[in-house]
């Protein structure tokens, strides 16, 4: 009676399933954008305000570098590109997978129920079901910074795109891993929020101002270093070791986040709170 496709067996079936998921995700993004544009004024205001907010920080750095032209080898252009990669990476990941900073409250408030009754991969379904409006401003800011201070060659654009990919995935996976702790500890919202804020803040300062333990932390538990060192290790000169380590960090945090979520769902306790999709 059902018109659903078979989920088992065969390469053709797997391809059909992947195509079905891709069509679903694209429709989700399209509707997220449509929902955001229901409030046009708010949509543009939020995006523009975030763009302006980032610009103010850059003005601060411009004033700083005007007095001290170089800090541990970092120049204004490097800091601008650092912001371009950090804000841009945060931007695309929050636009396309806007629920990742909200995983902890979603779990704690029992809002996974509706997603769990739907036939799409749970984590992907949850992540794509929301789009952050302010993050649009962040992404556009990142692209504008690249246009202003980046290397305008094919290789330069590819390196910047790789930086955005690493940055966005690290934001996504680290925050998702922290948020998934809500399956185990209940109210993990505060901790996940603090970790997320710490990651965002630390990813916008030049890596080389941190020494010793702080630097170790930046390249391990709170891997902001893989974002903030990208202007030097990826854009200024292609440092293969750094790029491979950054890719390994993305893979490790990705594995950790997905595993925590998958194991955590078995402990999910639901809830009776009223919920509606935004």
């Amino acid at each position: 009676m059902s018109t659903a496709v078979s989920l088992t067996g065969g390469r053709g079936s797997r391809i059909r399933r992947a195509a079905g998921i891709a069509r679903y995700v694209l429709t989700c993004w399209k509707l997220n954008l449509a929902a955001a544009m229901e409030y046009r004024a708010s949509f543009f205001m939020l995006a523009v305000m975030m763009f302006v907010n980032n610009c103010i920080w850059l003005v601060f750095w411009a004033i700083f570098f005007n007095r001290f032209p170089a800090v541990n080898g970092w120049e204004l252009r490097d800091v601008m590109l650092l912001w371009g990669i950090s804000a841009g990476g945060f931007g695309w990941s929050s636009v396309l997978f806007g629920n990742y900073p909200r995983i902890a409250p979603i779990v704690a408030n029992g809002e996974l129920d509706v997603f769990l009754t739907q036939p799409k991969p749970l984590l992907l379904n949850v992540l794509v079901s929301r789009m952050s409006l302010t993050a649009m401003g962040d992404f556009l800011f990142g692209v504008a910074i690249y246009a202003l201070a980046g290397e305008h060659t094919l290789i330069g654009a590819a390196k910047y795109a790789l930086g955005l990919l690493i940055s966005g995935l690290l934001f996504l996976f680290v925050t998702l891993a922290a948020g998934s702790l809500a399956f185990f500890f209940g109210h993990a919202e505060g901790m996940a929020f603090q970790l997320f804020n710490g990651l965002v803040a630390l990813s916008t300062y030049p890596t080389d101002i941190f020494k010793g333990t702080a630097r170790i932390v930046l390249f391990t538990v709170l891997p902001a270093g893989f974002i903030s060192y990208a202007p030097i290790g990826l854009l200024r000169r292609f440092d293969g070791t750094f790029v491979w380590l950054a890719a390994a960090a993305v893979a490790a945090f990705g594995l950790l986040a997905v595993s925590l979520f998958a194991v955590g769902v078995r402990r999910y306790t639901s809830g009776n709170r009223m919920a509606m999709r935004g």
């Binding site: 036939p119 009776n272 999709r277």
Partner: peptide, 29 residues
């Protein structure tokens, strides 16, 4: 599944859009 207290409709969009999304979700021709 219909939960009286949990909606699968998108709050800010018309039901026509949710129906469209569900058609993709259930892979209907």
């Amino acid at each position: 599944a219909v939960f009286g207290q949990k909606s699968q409709l998108w709050y800010h969009l018309p039901p026509a859009d949710t129906f469209e999304l569900l058609s993709r979700m259930y892979e209907l021709g």
